[in-house]
Design a protein around this nucleic acid. Structure first.
Lengths: 343, 343
DNA sequence: CTGAAAGCGCTTACAG
DNA sequence: CTGAAAGCGCTTACAG
């Protein structure tokens, strides 16, 4: 059997209470006593039993992270942020992958509840989930990630997608592009819709002479394959009626570049392509991708901090909405087509 | 405060022990008693406290998954497999990302221990970790993932890396390649060493005339960037002294292709390149990658099943080593340079 | 600064 | 079939 705090106390020649204090409130102990206890802890390889601790103190130090697709690099990075913030605060996180299924989501929410998690971080599969309210009612901390909290008493951490869309558009327009293709997914995806709104707003704000013509091509799945196939057939029918493409994400951008290459068009010489997300691979692609970067890691980190602060001091906690700003990362997949514009 | 089993007992007019039995061993109760207790449970909305239960009964239904880098698509897929298997069996998994740091690994191992996880799945950062033995000694189930168990009493699930290396080599040799560069990481990484062994074995088994000359270039990090930089300077000094490259993983392959492209060499026309892992992106790269595929998801799923079976019935459990076989996936980054060889 | 003692909520032998 | 009691391992007032 593994050592208990009783063994530690015995070995160090102190009481259990003192041994406990050595771990939880080292500052109240005399240095010598502390040293003795620590020595005993090391020698015995003592690890506190979390269940006992929880039972007494009422805190599990467990968080739940619920995401639609952990295979998506976006969520992977986010998960890393959550993990690091959690570890730093002495929390641990249970990972729940829902495959975009609301049913699996509810199932996980139940499991997390029965595990007495102190907080839950979630990017809901759908716009709303009524199960979420019962979470907060049970006194479990909650934070919405990559989606602003709407109609729910909770913290949220998100990135401004409208700004992101506008950044992409402005970059192309400043490069002299006036015929732009928007290659993206279904409008029912909140992020897609929001970015589109940003693009339209940015166009409206432009002086008339600079306003580009915007075509939109929606693809079924936000993957490279889908983008490649649909762009190819689009060009087949219409020809290349644009000088720049704004993509729904980096995978789509990569697919678009491949489609163009297959018909012997190169990027950025013939067409400029801009992605979204700035996934790790974007910088390492054959044509390093210009993209809109989102602070994925920070998104997770901030959300975890928020939930943890709620767990630590629920009474003083105030729900907040944190919003990050996306950032334009210029690499080699876009170029200016305005001759002699800048000095 | 939420109701405790004491409240239930009081309300039902029975003892706590009887109330407990109503939940855990309903068959030993008189039907009437059972009914009374159940009624009280419903009326009070009683939910058992998992920590108390665990403290007494000793099972948390929590698993820990420790990986070096969750951002690596290989481990992401693996994690999905683990999660799915766990959910199916009513377990939940705590994700631990070590960033290849042994220190972080030990830290997580401690946290998992103190959380009383019932089992741990781990791909250790280094060849051995003495902390692992103390895990099994504590009665925590253990499975080594993507690494055969050596010197440790535990289950393991791995892919035969020697076979993988040999598959890669044979593919190039069959394509007529006789000058091959092995572009990989440090030999201290078990997988790297094992694949290399497979390559050498395969060479030795070849008829003398077919035996290729093998050069080896080791890079610091198994990333595209590192591969690009080091291959570029290697070629700078020696020129292109090979017709094919076997890479340590797909990221390296992607970096190699970029390096070649920068000096106007194309793949596979000038040089054939073969990757390893067959990550999702491999198929969608600009030059779709020939690669050695590993059953990532299944690796995780199988390992989780093994650990869970150990948790469920430790006495009857027998440690086993599961080995999967890698598979050659031929795409467009390699080609045969033997003219008129095949009909 | 340290120790003795109560108790977190539950389960589990053990009597009866 | 049911109840009284011990105890899982820890933390936390409370004395001293």
């Amino acid at each position: 059997m593994s050592a208990s705090i009783r063994d530690v106390a015995k070995r160090a020649g102190v009481s259990m209470g003192t041994a406990s204090n050595a771990i939880n409130k080292p500052e109240v102990l005399a240095p010598e006593t502390l040293h003795k206890v620590r020595k005993a802890i090391v020698e015995l390889g003592f690890v506190p039993n979390a269940s006992a601790r929880t039972l007494r103190a009422g805190r599990t130090h467990i968080l739940g992270l619920v995401v639609p697709d952990i295979a998506n690099p976006f969520f992977t990075e986010l998960a890393k942020g959550v993990n690091d913030a959690a570890l730093k605060a002495g929390y641990v996180v249970i990972l729940c992958n829902t495959d975009e299924s609301s049913q699996k989501e509810d199932q996980y929410l139940d499991v997390l509840t029965s595990q007495n998690v102190q907080g839950i971080l979630i990017t809901p599969a759908r716009a709303t989930n009524k199960a979420l309210t019962s979470i907060t009612e049970r006194g479990i901390g909650l934070a919405l990630v990559d989606r602003p909290a709407s109609g729910i008493e909770a913290c949220s951490v998100a990135v401004n997608d409208a700004t992101g869309g506008s950044l992409a558009l402005k970059h192309l327009v400043e490069g002299g592009h006036r015929k732009i293709l928007l290659l993206t997914g279904a409008k029912s995806i909140p992020q897609v819709a929001e970015r589109e709104k940003g693009i339209l707003t940015a166009i409206a704000a432009l002086p008339k002479v600079e306003r580009p013509i915007l075509q939109t091509l929606r693809i079924d799945a936000m993957t490279a394959q889908s983008a490649d196939a649909m762009l190819t057939s689009y060009i087949d029918q219409k020809g290349i009626t644009f000088t720049g493409i704004i993509c729904g994400n980096d995978l789509i951008a990569l697919g678009a570049i491949r489609a163009l290459r297959n018909i012997n068009k190169s990027v950025p010489e013939d067409v400029s392509v801009i992605g979204y997300d700035d996934i790790d691979f974007a910088a390492n692609a054959n044509v390093p991708l210009t993209s809109i970067s989102q602070p994925k890691y920070q998104l997770g980190y901030a959300a975890a901090e928020l939930v943890i602060s709620e767990c630590e001091d629920p009474s003083r906690h105030i729900h907040q909405r944190v919003e990050f700003q996306p950032q334009l990362i210029i690499r080699q997949s876009t170029r200016s087509i305005t001759p002699n514009k800048k000095p």
